Amino acid sequence: MKKTILITGAGSGIGLDTAFALAARQHRVIATTIDEAQSLTLKAMALTKGLSLEVFKLDITSAQDREKILSLELDVLINNAGVGESGSLAEVDIDRIRHVFEVNLFGTLALTQLALRGMIQRQRGTVLLVSSIAGRIPMPFLMPYSMSKFALSAAGAGLRAELQQLRCGVHVALIEPGAIHTGFNQAMTESKYAWMGKQSYFAAHVARLKAEEKRTFQFLEAKTTESIVSQIVKAAEAKKPKLRYVAPWIQGFGVRLARIFGV
């Protein structure tokens, strides 16, 4: 059955590739972006590929933008929009952490609540929350981002259990990507070096940190988004999605082992 699916953060990376994959499967895809410039670019790309997308700007931190979805009868909401931030919790500006939570948790939850109004009334629907493997195991120097994803994963699991008590036919699932080469990870890890100066506790360690980050991503990152996009498509099309969809699977397995051994 073809569905009406809205995805946030569709201007690049996983969101963009997911929007195209769902449109290719003949779903009605409403792909939203952070600004008008990305919307125009996305429309042009879809036209080039011969795919039908409905595109508009939706900044999930804007109440006015969020209300745009109230007129839509959504079968699936894919909460993909998110931002990254890095830096040691010993010194990172609290406002930077606050901004990450404003987008990754509060904006996401506020949009979800609006979508749930219609879904609960119609007694059907699926909400997918794009969290991260980083939301299951602490990631040193990535904790501003990692904490927000820990919170989002907890919110998703709790909301799923709450809606199950309503028996309203609305499902919630978590999408947990691992390290995938989209440029997001590099931009996030680099963000801390914009403000870390000679006064930083870690000033003497910057060269080592940069080298370790480069090696880690070269080793871990999947080269394409194909594995996680296929999981998102599977979750969006499922009648009763499971709680978690993880890809690449080997990274998810590694996280499970790390938690078992108390890492």
Rank of each mutant, 00 (worst) to 15 (best):
M1F: 10
K2M: 14
K2V: 14
I7Y: 10
T8W: 02
T8Y: 03
I14E: 02
L16G: 00
L16A: 00
D17E: 15
D17A: 12
D17K: 10
D17L: 12
T18P: 03
A24Y: 05
A24V: 01
V29L: 04
V29I: 12
T32A: 07
E36F: 06
S39V: 09
L40Q: 13
K43F: 01
M45Y: 03
K49R: 15
K49V: 05
G50W: 03
V55F: 08
V55N: 06
F56M: 03
D59G: 06
D59R: 00
D59V: 04
I60R: 01
S62K: 02
A63S: 14
D65M: 04
R66K: 03
R66E: 04
K68M: 11
I69Q: 02
S71V: 13
S71P: 01
I78S: 07
I78A: 05
N79T: 05
A81G: 05
G82L: 09
E85D: 07
E91G: 09
V92W: 01
I94T: 06
I97M: 13
I97Q: 04
R98D: 12
H99T: 14
V100R: 00
V100Q: 00
F101V: 12
E102C: 04
N104L: 11
T108L: 15
L109T: 14
L111P: 11
L111K: 09
T112Q: 04
Q113T: 12
Q113I: 01
I120K: 14
T126C: 08
V127C: 08
L128P: 04
S131L: 05
I133K: 01
I137M: 10
P138F: 11
P140Y: 04
F141S: 02
M143P: 01
P144Y: 11
P144A: 06
M147L: 15
A157K: 08
R160H: 06
A161F: 02
E162V: 05
L163Y: 01
Q164E: 15
Q164G: 14
L166R: 11
R167D: 15
G169P: 03
G169W: 08
I175T: 05
I175F: 07
E176R: 09
E176S: 11
E176V: 03
G178H: 07
F184V: 06
N185D: 13
T189Q: 08
S191H: 05
K192H: 00
K192S: 10
A194W: 03
W195E: 04
K198T: 12
H205N: 10
R208T: 12
L209T: 00
K214Q: 14
K214S: 12
K214T: 14
R215W: 09
Q218H: 12
Q218S: 11
E221Q: 15
A222E: 15
T225L: 08
E226V: 12
I228K: 07
V229A: 02
S230L: 08
V233L: 05
V233Y: 07
V233C: 13
E237I: 13
K239W: 04
P241Q: 05
P241H: 04
L243R: 13
Y245S: 04
Q251I: 06
G252W: 03
G254F: 07
G254Y: 09
L257N: 00
L257Q: 08
A258F: 07
R259H: 06
I260P: 02
